[in-house]
Amino acid sequence: MGSKGGLIPVRFLVTLGQMLGIIFLLYSKGDHVRAALPFDYDKEEYKDAERSFEAAIGLSIAFLIVELIGLLAGVSLFFTAVAFVDSLLHGLGCVLLVMFITNEWRSETLWILFPFISLVPFVCEVWAFVAVFGLQVMPY
């Protein structure tokens, strides 16, 4: 009960927090993309950088939605390890995204952060889905 009482609310709130940070990136998209480009960029370069940035944001949002569904539907609710990894990495993600926005980091930096704050928690979530529905380690 101890871990259930502490970790799961933290995981939920921190996941929501990262969702908020990612959605806020959409508002300041132009600043990050311009920061990543050389001084004399043309329209084509801007479009490419913007598309890459949008892809990272879109993938992150999709992963976070899958994680929230897994959490609220109770699939990964009882996996303490998943809750721990998610809390840690999404908590880190919240802090990094705040720095990302306030310091106007370059847009490619999001792809460097992406594996840590989006991909690893998503892989954990998928592992929980496989364990529950594929291997059936616990009844759903």
């Binding site: 609310p9 929501l16 609220l72």
Partner: peptide, 17 residues
């Protein structure tokens, strides 16, 4: 209802935040 209870549980934490 278990789904209702899950939502009430998370809503409590969400509301506090």
């Amino acid at each position: 209802s278990l789904p209702l209870q899950i939502f009430i549980y998370f809503d409590g934490y969400w509301s506090a935040l």
